[in-house]
């Protein structure tokens, strides 16, 4: 029982295996961190959405009026654009997993373009709403609504904007320079997680803010 044998740490693991292990650790570390980051984003968006929901619950007539003013067409188009961009994103990932870098570039470029159009249409929507009196300035007709509507949607738009930049700077340009391959697509997957998350947030925002 009390006999103690001294064992040296095993250094006979081959270098390649060690490298593979280190890489696997890196991949799982980074993905884990990305998910944790998204978890904290869930909470930030959640606060903003909850604040809106409280307002919606207490002031149903105001929201109905704004909905009547704004119509649903523009935002429905935007929703489809974002869903489509999410699809493009995942198709791009699929292509690079199969080793098709050209496909990756094309699909992610489509994603970025759709994201840009989304932002442009959101700007149009903001101007329509401002004209209808949904303004942050006190005294405007729908001031209270504006205060609860703009922060979550703007914050989301900001995320889309960051996502577009991300797509261009860290996915498309490196891919054009020859990065990424069938065994090396962590960067694409990373961006995918972010982009799909932004899409999920929009799915919730769309329902809670524009449809409810």
């Amino acid at each position: 029982m009390s006999e103690v044998s001294i064992q040296h740490t095993d250094v006979s693991v081959s270098q390649a295996a060690a490298r593979a292990k280190a890489k696997a650790l890196r991949v799982s570390n980074y993905k884990f961190a990305m998910w944790l980051y998204l978890a904290s984003e869930v909470v930030i968006f959640g606060t903003l959405i909850a604040a809106y929901a409280v307002f919606r619950y207490n002031n149903p007539e105001v929201v109905h009026e704004v909905h009547k003013e704004a119509g649903v067409l523009l935002v429905a188009i935007n929703t489809f654009l974002l869903l489509m961009s999410s699809w493009c994103m995942v198709m791009g990932l699929r292509d690079i997993q199969m080793g098709n870098r050209q496909g990756l570039i094309r699909w992610i470029a489509a994603t970025a373009v759709l994201g840009t159009v989304f932002i442009a249409l959101q700007a149009v929507e903001y101007s329509v709403l401002s004209a209808a009196g949904v303004l942050m300035t006190p005294g405007a007709e729908f001031h209270a609504f504006a205060a609860h509507f703009y922060p979550p949607t703007f914050f989301h738009g900001l995320h889309v904007f960051v996502g577009v930049l991300w797509a261009v700077i860290w996915v498309i340009i490196p891919a054009m320079r020859g990065s990424y391959g069938p065994g090396d697509y962590l960067g694409v997957e990373f961006f995918g997680l972010y982009w799909h998350f932004v899409d999920v947030v929009w799915i919730v925002l769309f329902t809670v803010i524009y449809l409810w």
């Binding site: 944790l36 978890a39 904290s40 984003e41 869930v42 909470v43 930030i44 959640g46 606060t47 903003l48 604040a51 942050m136 300035t137 006190p138 001031h143 209270a144 205060a147 609860h148 922060p151």
Partner: peptide
Amino acid sequence: VMATPFLAGGLTLLILDRVAGTAF
């Protein structure tokens, strides 16, 4: 990870109330 973003959300609203004229 789960609680601090709440504070961030709340602080954002507080800052908006203070500087941007909102009324959360």
